[in-house]
């Protein structure tokens, strides 16, 4: 029997280390280019949350790189929401709440609408952390309901 603190085997951990980087970068890219291609902060956030879930499954929740994330997930989610609110409130300087207050760049480039990139990144943080928190709650709930304290496979 494996304690869930250990995470999965070394093979999985090595592969996860590689794929994790790609997943996080992919999530960021989907969010940053949300105003140019299909995607955006929500879709990018879902990818990011999947990365977090992979990290937890591969390295375990109790220690390792995922543990730091676990402690800060609420703060990360709150930061995303507050960043969105802050960016939106700055829109008042341009006339409206949520107005695009940054200067415009050349069309169809990343900086054509910097405001949208920033907003999408804030949403990425909020959705990524929020979905991951939801995943963790489900895990904890499952453990709470299983009095043996182990996984389902052991019974």
């Amino acid at each position: 029997m494996r304690s869930d603190r250990d995470g999965l085997s070394a093979i999985v951990q090595v592969v996860a280390r590689w794929t994790l980087v790609m997943i996080v970068v992919y999530g960021l890219a989907v969010a940053c280019f949300g105003h140019l291609t299909p995607g955006g902060g929500f879709a990018g956030g879902v990818a990011l949350a999947c990365g977090f879930v992979l990290a937890t499954l591969a390295f375990g929740g109790g220690s390792g790189p995922a543990a730091a994330l676990h402690r800060r997930v609420a703060a990360l989610e709150a930061s995303g929401a507050l960043a969105f609110l802050g960016l939106a409130a700055l829109g008042w300087t341009a006339g409206h709440f949520l107005q695009a207050w940054t200067p415009r760049g050349a069309a169809f480039t990343l900086v054509s609408a910097p405001f949208l990139v920033l907003i999408n990144l804030a949403i990425l943080l909020k959705v990524g952390a929020g979905l991951f928190a939801g995943f963790m709650v489900l895990v904890l709930f499952d453990r709470g309901l299983a009095p043996t304290g182990g996984g389902e496979g052991e019974t």
Binding site: E77, A78, L82
Partner: peptide
Amino acid sequence: ALPLLAGFACLL
């Protein structure tokens, strides 16, 4: 925005 700000500030 005001209650949202207060709510997420509580969390942070």
